[in-house]
Design a protein around this nucleic acid. Structure first.
Length: 568
RNA sequence: CGGGGUGUAGCGCAGUUGGCUAGCGCGCAUGCUUUGGGAGCAUGAGGUCGGCGGUUCAAAUCCGCCCACCCCGACCA
């Protein structure tokens, strides 16, 4: 490709709207163009990288036993009403009416469609297992698109669905996909981490996410250096530790006027925060829920939401709390009746806690579980923090940020049951098909790759997903045979099978070098009167400081070597 | 949806106590001179000042309503 003809202008200045690095570089390099919030055009350069990522994904899916197909983006809302998932997706679902006022949606994912398909084409255990996938555009009306391609409303995604007869089959499919995913990120040249995850709106049981480590990532990951445990913040658990509080003593009332927060209570009584009980109030699908934890523990709202099995969860407003007869600042579960309650396990890990007295200006000392209070649900709803003990080995957990570029779920049978996707087993017994689903955000890999691989000057593409492998930039192109030599070399490289971006522009060296750096093509070739005189060319790898002079004779072999080399 | 911010040429910005033909840098076009890390000079093209309405002799500038986009939070590949 001739740079003079390449569609998509590079920009010298950082676009004002772009805040994070991949967004800035994608815009500056002329790879994407926004048209509305979270909606972008992919220009030729970006599309080449996208296609390369897709190809790697496709090969790994095929290798793992997947079959590619293509489902419609346009889906009847009816299908979603059948599974009830239109409620879980809520207004994230793009909806529209056709000319007969039939409700349609733009698919945010394809479990409904694929299950419908499979229901019609699978009858017997002999038809299973199956792994079906597609690479297709997904639509999600995200509440807040952000970060360029990191979070958008229309995006290309690979989604594979597995169908098995039993749990061990699902486990096998799941492991095949995990391995395929690992292969994909490795082949793309992108360091990743696999973490335990919450399954969110998709539903289901076990779930893992694949993260590209990057500071701009939206997700927080807790991980253990010594045993390898890693989990998304919303899923992470920690080793729970008990607080020494001594033998249970009789409950005692204390006057605590104006003392409401945990910090104030602890200070007033001269005890540590983990010797108190915290009360937090949520509205779950419109109902007030009393949530209590030990004073040093924060609530993990995702865990709480899963525990309550509710669709909508938010902190309750003051008026909602007082309407329920609760005295904010002095509340506890001691003697409280008629309100749904959830307690974190931490309330059992200690004794003689300080808690609210359920009347203004009053707290209780020596509150003990379960002697003095109980909760409808006792479980882990704690927010794990950096420094907490690893649940597996007890070492201190570390925290980092990542960009989620893949997510695998064990779905089980709830979708197949709702959609009527059954098979007959060897004994002629009808059983629901066991499902798994596996997604990769192709466009997000592109953005994540830039987040991971850049410097002040621009992008540094890993070779396997670079839009072009070689940037060929003759300088002083108007001088003694340079243009001709450039054209000759361009032709030679293309004939040898290299993907070459040929900078045929009449520009100063500085302009060309800066553009080459911005675009991040892995290898830069510079042809100049100086090098040409000795029948040589200057070769510089994008990620390296030093360049070297190489004879034109045999240049294709030389390039092959450095492009193949690992880590380049 | 809550909180914050911004809309003036392709990009980055100035101008906003109302006042002349709306400016600057980059980029773009033409010409000459240049050229190993974003060259110089000259000439030139390019604007519904986010939109609608109002106030006024006069609005980018004041008032009202609306829209769009960005950032922080609740959600996700």
């Amino acid at each position: 490709m001739r740079l003079s003809r390449l569609f998509g202008k590079r920009q010298r200045e950082i676009p004002a709207e772009a805040d994070n690095i991949s967004h800035q570089l994608l815009l500056r390099s002329g790879m994407i163009q926004p048209i509305a919030a979270g909606i972008y055009s992919f220009l030729p350069l970006a599309l080449r990288t996208l296609r390369k990522i897709e190809q790697i994904v496709r090969e790994e899916m095929d290798n793992a036993g997947g079959q590619e197909l293509l489902m419609p983006a346009l889906q009847p809302l009816e299908l979603w009403e059948k599974t009830g998932r239109h409620l879980a997706f809520g207004s994230t679902l793009f909806t529209l009416d056709d000319r007969r006022q039939r409700k349609l949606i733009l698919g945010p994912t394809h479990e409904e469609i694929i299950t419908f398909l499979v229901r019609h084409h699978v009858q017997s255990y002999k038809d299973l297992p199956q792994m079906l996938y597609q690479i297709q555009t997904k639509f999600r009306d995200e509440p807040r698109p952000r970060g360029g391609l990191l979070r958008v409303r229309e995006f290309p995604m690979k989604d594979l669905y597995s169908f098995d007869t039993d749990e061990s089959g699902l486990e096998e499919s799941y492991q095949k996909m995990v391995q395929a995913y690992k292969n994909i990120y490795t082949r793309c040249g992108l360091p990743f981490i696999m973490v335990e995850a919450d399954s969110g709106a998709i539903g289901g049981k076990e779930s893992h996410e694949f993260m590209l480590i990057a500071d701009s990532g939206e997700d927080e990951i807790l991980y253990c250096k010594s045993c390898g445990y890693a989990a998304n913040l919303e899923k992470a658990v920690s080793k729970r530790t008990s607080v020494e509080g001594g033998q249970p003593l009789p409950v005692e009332e204390i006057e605590t006027p104006g003392v409401t927060s945990i910090a104030e209570v602890a200070g007033f009584l001269n005890i540590t925060e983990n010797r108190t009980l915290k009360a937090v109030f949520y509205m779950a699908d419109g109902h007030l829920v009393f949530v209590t934890t030990r004073g040093d523990v924060d609530v993990n709202e995702v865990k709480l939401k899963n525990t309550l099995k509710c669709l909508d969860l938010r902190l309750a407003r003051e008026d909602e709390v007082s309407q329920a007869g609760i005295v904010a600042g002095y509340a506890s579960l001691v003697g409280l009746k008629g309100i749904k309650s959830v307690a974190d396990e931490s309330v059992t890990l200690g004794s003689n806690f300080a808690a609210g007295g359920n009347k203004p200006g009053c707290h209780l000392k020596n509150v003990n579980y379960p002697r003095d209070f109980n909760a409808d649900i006792l479980t882990d709803i704690s927010l794990t923090r950096e420094g907490d003990g690893c649940p597996k080995c007890g070492e201190s957990l570390l925290i980092t940020r990542g960009v989620e570029v893949g997510h695998v779920f064990k779905l089980g049978t709830f979708l197949s049951e709702k959609m009527g996707a059954y098979y007959l087993d060897q004994n002629g017994v009808q059983k629901p098909i066991i499902m798994g689903c596996y997604g990769i955000g192709i466009g997000r890999i592109l953005a994540g790759a830039i987040e991971q691989n850049h410097d002040e000057a621009g992008i540094i593409w890993p070779v396997p997903i670079a839009p072009y492998q070689v940037y060929l930039g003759p300088i002083f192109i108007d001088k003694e045979g340079i243009a001709e030599a450039g054209e000759r070399l361009y032709r030679e490289l293309e004939e040898a099978g290299f993907e070459v971006l040929y900078d045929d522009r009449m520009e100063s060296p500085g302009v060309k070098f800066n553009d080459a750096d911005l675009l991040g093509i892995p290898v830069r070739l510079t042809l100049s009167p100086r090098t040409l005189k000795n029948s040589t060319v200057e070769v510089k790898k994008r990620g390296e400081k030093e360049s070297r002079i190489v004879p034109l004779e045999g240049i294709t072999g030389f390039l092959k070597d450095i492009l193949m080399k690992k880590g380049s």
